[in-house]
Nucleic acid binder design. Structure first.
Lengths: 113, 113
DNA sequence: TCAAAAGTTCTGTTATTACGAACTATATAC
DNA sequence: GTATATAGTTCGTAATAACAGAACTTTTGA
């Protein structure tokens, strides 16, 4: 938690899949990759891709993962994060949820001009 | 401002140079690229690189740029942004400033094993 | 011990980033 | 007008990182 940085967190959240995963974890408190493909906001993603997204969230310090049998259970580190970064993460997720309430659109890759 | 997204903003801020520029703009309300090289938190950057960072901040919707003679004057779009995203951006910049108050270290490229 | 399910690592391809060089735009001097 | 200087953008390319299929590892349960 010492070398968790603001920039690192923002980078992790800058990916549509990762912020969605975190937002789901923030509500569900537990989720796993499951099976070969999993649906994240209307997009089926291969487990290798999801594995890497979870790894980035983990390395960034946003989530904690624990092995339960063959599965991996994930949860946010929200208490520590709030202690360290104040209301930042909550306000990000709030804005993200509000945004998706306005426009019900599917995750898509970023495209710049 | 319609197609400004949470992910887009977080992506823009995930770069150490860009979040620093925005944080400076949030205080100074005006800054320009200036001369060939400019010092951003202890790193000299070529103007081409800075130009692109400013362009990303602009395209993301975080800043507004106006030509004043040969110079470009930049300022944050904080009022509109706060209306749209609530306390998100302020809490990010607050956390960023607090982080840099704790550890006085120079901007460095992200390295992930 | 074999098979199945859950994840991770490896690998080639594709897309992004960084920065020097070349280019554009504005202002001031001659 | 032409020249020159300053501010900033675009282009080209080499280094970096992301994506996803294939192969591998780990745990469980028959």
């Amino acid at each position: 938690m010492e070398d968790v940085t603001v920039e690192g967190i923002l980078y992790a959240f800058s990916n549509p899949v990762r912020i969605r995963i975190y937002a789901e974890l923030a509500v569900a408190e537990c989720a796993q990759i499951c099976s070969a493909y999993r649906d994240i906001a209307g997009v089926k993603l291969p487990k290798s891709t999801l594995s890497q997204h979870f790894a980035i969230l983990r390395e960034t310090g946003l989530i904690r993962s624990e092995r339960k049998g063959t599965e991996l259970h994930n949860e946010t580190r929200c208490e520590e994060l709030e202690k360290r970064f104040g209301p930042m993460i909550d306000s990000i997720i709030d804005a993200y949820i509000a945004q998706n309430a306005r426009s019900r659109k599917v995750i898509q890759k970023k495209k710049r001009k």
